[in-house]
Design a protein around this nucleic acid. Structure first.
Lengths: 202, 202
DNA sequence: TGTATGACATGTTCCATAAACCGTCACTCA
DNA sequence: TGAGTGACGGTTTATGGAACATGTCATACA
């Protein structure tokens, strides 16, 4: 009902779409998701409110897109680590630290964005699940590498090991926990990475 | 300023105190912490509102006590496991499962209590920190046992290992995460226990 | 002297109403 | 024909004054 779009929405004008997303980025950052109205976005780019709905099914759809971009920015850092060519154990440890750091960064330097991510979680947007899925696949590739390279043990079923690691990441990456743990987060990340690596070691 | 009490509060009448706590338990359970007023409690036991403050410094102090009792109920289960005489690895695995189960139980069968625990976290009551500290000490004793029995490795500094384990427990015991993870919580607990045990194994 | 209270100052919460917002549709105009 | 809009229904949210809660005190009474 949502991703299918409206039959009415013809061939999409990508430039307009980008304009809207840019405006959304600006406004969400400054005033937060809830406080900005789609009328604000329309006014910012000199269009009517109604016309926005030719490009997005709802305000939420805009929010989801912004949220997705936000997640993507973090995922870029993760990808950098995964593709860095370092030993698997090193890469895994860096994933813990990277996620912790990016989380803290979002929390302190982009609070309004952090709030969107939180809202997304609470309202059950798909963005969080997508992020989790992608993260799992990156972790899987690193662990598989480590196993092939003889760094990691191979007895535990791969999928079990991977899911365990992703779970163990939660304390340093879950948006809600960031608020509680932020003062020890980096240390926690390092501690958990150590534990995980011991659990994987050959 | 709080634990010191009022100089005015003389030798404490423990029966009255219990009455108040009983009434609080009743009311908090039924109507939640926020919705019950100290006037409600006073009325329930036939006293004036003002007199309640002879026994507790504030409504919050009553809430903290109830919250503490709630935590204690969980801790009893943990202690049972710790003192069960089973192998350390088995006890550690059971700690994961027990906390997960008790958490779910609170969430579904005693929702109002769960809400108090949540409020406590958000408002920074000391109860959560106390619980964490006690949990850490139990985990430490089990791990120490395991090391002495030759079940666990002894290279990793004990404190580091313990803190890692307590962190790894977060996804299955943190009240906020329960809401997100409840449908896979038992499975998650088992998975994390497995990971932790691998990390500790000799 | 110790149990117990009513009255009160100082917040908080509630609630009815007004305003604003979301999303749709028929419509314009080039 | 397709980019773009004004007006509108249903719902959510802001507002501000009344009602209620918390916590203190001076005092009553046995």
């Amino acid at each position: 009902m949502q991703s299918a779009g409206k039959g009415q929405r013809g061939p999409i004008d990508h430039e307009r779409r980008e304009q809207i997303l840019d405006a959304a980025n600006e406004h969400f950052r400054h005033y937060g998701y809830k406080k900005t109205t789609v009328a604000d976005l329309a006014k910012a780019i000199g269009l009517s409110t109604a016309y926005i709905y030719k490009f997005f099914d709802s305000k939420r759809a805009i929010g989801e897109e912004i949220c997705r971009q936000c997640h993507e920015r973090v995922m870029v850092d993760v990808k950098d680590v995964v593709g860095s060519g370092k030993p698997a154990s090193e890469r895994l440890r860096l994933i813990f630290l990277t996620l912790a750091r990016d989380g803290i960064d979002l929390l302190f330097n982009d609070r309004k964005m952090h709030d969107i991510v939180l809202a997304a979680l609470e309202e059950g947007w798909s963005t969080a699940a997508d992020f989790d899925a992608e993260l799992l696949s990156h972790v899987r590739s690193v662990i598989a590498d480590g196993r092939n390279a003889g760094e990691f043990e191979r007895k535990t079923p791969l999928e079990e090991a991977c899911r365990g690691v992703v779970l163990a990441l939660q304390p340093v990456r879950h948006p809600v926990l960031l608020e509680f743990n932020h003062n020890t987060l980096i240390e926690d990340a390092s501690l958990l990475a150590g534990l995980v690596l011991r659990s994987l070691s050959a």
